[in-house]
Amino acid sequence: MKEPITPHAIRKLILEQSHRARVGHIGSALSIADIIAVLFGEALHLPGIQDPQRDRFVLSKGHAALALYAALHLKGIINRAHIQSHCTDGTLLGVHAEHQVPGIEFSTGSLGHGLAYGAGIALAARMSGAPFRAFVLLSDAECNEGSVWESIMFAAHHKLSNLIAIVDNNGQQAFGKTKDILDLSPIGDKWRAFGWDLREVDGHSLPELRRAFKEIDTKSGKPHVIVANTVSGKGVSFMEGKVEWHYLPLTDELYASAMKEIESAK
């Protein structure tokens, strides 16, 4: 079943499924709901999940897989029964993104792997003269991983302008605030200093996200990074910016309250 891929619909599915399955990572998934909505709603060229000319999307922050499952469901790639199987025994839809799921290109969950894979895709497209692009969504704390910077250097040196990284800059990581744990700010300047074309946007503003993706010039001679400033748990006030919602599952009471807030914000 195809439905409009709206942030609202994605957030509802994230809450519904995480509540049913009693699993966490809700804050991380809500953080990227708007980015995912714009990507799967319009920015990605996806004529078919096996089409060789499709844009490749890699969710490098694999722990936010629920947002991706939601988009794949709304796009009609995975059905209702499929998404209902999330985190049940024998499912393909686990906590982290897994390539056995239709529409998921690359298994993630261990941070720091997605950008190199995306750079390889971008290089393959260029070598074969194909028009497809590679989009990689990373978390800000994922940039703690040294391997990310290896890929950043390679992509700039080889002018992979068909590679687009999006950094979900929610300022939060597993133990607290990124500024307290390993401060990366100003993160956009760091990418730019390494030779990337930088755009900084409000990661919850659809017009800003749309404009940023539209402006991507695959002939620019530079890889592109969109630093999306976000709030973890966005849309559910008691979760926003709270580290515990990296882990906690929803009780029935909190689920009802979160859904009410999401519905009223529609």
């Binding site: 190199a116 750079a119 390889g120 290089l123 393959a124 074969s128």
Partner: peptide
């Protein structure tokens, strides 16, 4: 491609390339 002294990135790149038929 000499990817520089960066073995982790080299394997990631190769994985992406292999997924596209190389």
């Amino acid at each position: 491609f000499n990817v520089g002294v960066a073995e982790a990135n080299m394997i990631g790149l190769a994985t992406g390339l292999a997924s596209c038929g190389y």
